[in-house]
């Protein structure tokens, strides 16, 4: 199965924001992560990351992150404008 690369902004907030979620995700799913940029302030964090995985595996990993309170947006955000 061909691997797919995607670029995302992850926004960590809420009670699980300080958990090692990227580490846990990579243990649970076969996803290669490449962190390009990260900022943290108080209980909120923003991370620019590239994920590489088989498509279905990546979808499941993103869904898992979202279940844990992480907002996952493609880097190309706001393509829908008013």
């Amino acid at each position: 199965m061909a691997k797919f690369k995607g670029r995302y902004w992850l926004n960590f907030s809420g009670p699980k924001a300080t958990d090692p979620l990227i580490y846990l995700m990579s243990k649970k799913f076969d996803v290669i992560f490449n962190i390009r940029q990260a900022t943290i302030s108080g209980e909120m964090g923003l991370m620019g990351v590239e994920f590489e995985a088989e498509r279905e595996e990546l979808k499941a990993a993103i869904a898992w992150l979202e279940e844990h309170g992480v907002t996952v947006e493609p880097v190309e955000i706001n393509t829908i404008e008013g």
Binding site: N11, T39, S41, G42, M44, G45, L46, T71, E81, G82
Partner: peptide, 18 residues
């Protein structure tokens, strides 16, 4: 702060800014 907390479900009549 300059970290933006996303608004998952915008609810306003100003849809062009949502």
């Amino acid at each position: 702060t300059d970290l933006i907390r996303p608004v998952p479900k915008p609810d306003t009549i100003a849809k062009s800014l949502a």
